[in-house]
Simulated assay, not measured.
Amino acid sequence: MPKRSSVLEVGITGGIGAGKSVVCEIFKSLGIPIYDADSRSKWLLGNDEKLKHQLKETFGAKAFTPDDLLNRIFLAEEVFHNPQQLEKLNRLVHPRVGEDYEDWVKQHQAAPYVLKEAALLIEAGSYRRLDFLITVNAPEDLRIERIKARDPQRSMEQIAAIIKKQLSEEERQEIADFVIDNSGTRLLIPQVVKLHRFFCEKGKR
Rank of each mutant, 00 (worst) to 15 (best):
residue 58 T to V: 00
residue 191 Q to R: 05
residue 175 I to F: 02
residue 162 I to R: 05
residue 201 E to F: 04
residue 160 A to Q: 12
residue 124 A to R: 14
residue 175 I to T: 11
residue 31 G to E: 14
residue 181 D to F: 09
residue 2 P to H: 10
residue 56 K to F: 09
residue 109 Q to Y: 00
residue 133 L to E: 10
residue 184 G to Y: 01
residue 42 K to Q: 12
residue 101 Y to S: 05
residue 7 V to R: 07
residue 198 F to T: 13
residue 117 E to A: 13
residue 120 L to G: 03
residue 82 N to Q: 08
residue 176 A to T: 00
residue 79 V to S: 10
residue 92 L to I: 04
residue 50 K to M: 08
residue 173 Q to A: 13
residue 203 G to W: 06
residue 167 L to D: 11
residue 98 G to E: 11
residue 167 L to P: 02
residue 186 R to F: 13
residue 112 P to L: 03
residue 156 M to I: 06
residue 51 L to A: 06
residue 75 L to P: 06
residue 28 K to Y: 07
residue 200 C to T: 15
residue 112 P to E: 05
residue 86 L to F: 07
residue 203 G to C: 00
residue 182 N to T: 09
residue 23 V to R: 03
residue 19 G to L: 02
residue 166 Q to F: 02
residue 149 A to H: 09
residue 176 A to N: 06
residue 73 I to R: 15
residue 9 E to N: 03
residue 201 E to A: 14
residue 115 L to Q: 07
residue 149 A to M: 03
residue 157 E to T: 09
residue 137 N to G: 02
residue 11 G to R: 11
residue 93 V to C: 11
residue 136 V to I: 10
residue 205 R to I: 12
residue 16 I to D: 02
residue 50 K to N: 12
residue 182 N to A: 15
residue 190 P to A: 06
residue 13 T to K: 05
residue 5 S to Y: 04
residue 121 L to K: 07
residue 90 N to K: 08
residue 80 F to M: 15
residue 116 K to D: 05
residue 39 S to A: 15
residue 170 E to A: 02
residue 158 Q to I: 01
residue 71 N to G: 00
residue 72 R to W: 02
residue 151 D to P: 01
residue 107 Q to T: 10
residue 71 N to M: 02
residue 197 R to Y: 13
residue 39 S to F: 10
residue 39 S to K: 14
residue 16 I to C: 11
residue 31 G to Y: 07
residue 104 W to C: 12
residue 119 A to K: 10
residue 187 L to T: 11
residue 24 C to E: 07
residue 130 L to P: 00
residue 35 Y to N: 02
residue 181 D to C: 10
residue 103 D to I: 14
residue 10 V to M: 02
residue 58 T to L: 00
residue 36 D to A: 06
residue 70 L to H: 03
residue 116 K to T: 03
residue 143 R to M: 02
residue 56 K to L: 14
residue 148 K to T: 01
residue 95 P to L: 00
residue 91 R to D: 06
residue 136 V to C: 12
residue 40 R to M: 10
residue 34 I to R: 04
residue 63 A to L: 10
residue 96 R to T: 08
residue 90 N to D: 03
residue 22 V to F: 15
residue 155 S to F: 00
residue 37 A to K: 01
residue 148 K to G: 00
residue 94 H to C: 04
residue 80 F to T: 07
residue 179 V to E: 06
residue 150 R to Q: 09
residue 165 K to R: 13
residue 115 L to I: 12
residue 16 I to R: 04
residue 100 D to T: 01
residue 15 G to T: 14
residue 117 E to F: 11
residue 153 Q to Y: 11
residue 61 A to I: 13
residue 56 K to I: 12
residue 180 I to V: 14
residue 173 Q to K: 11
residue 34 I to G: 00
residue 52 K to Y: 05
residue 96 R to G: 03
residue 41 S to V: 11
residue 183 S to W: 02
residue 184 G to T: 07
residue 8 L to S: 06
residue 129 R to E: 15
residue 107 Q to G: 00
residue 169 E to A: 12
residue 36 D to S: 08
residue 61 A to E: 14
residue 7 V to I: 12
residue 113 Y to A: 03
residue 187 L to E: 12
residue 108 H to P: 01
residue 119 A to D: 01
residue 120 L to Q: 06
residue 2 P to S: 04
residue 119 A to S: 14
residue 163 I to S: 00
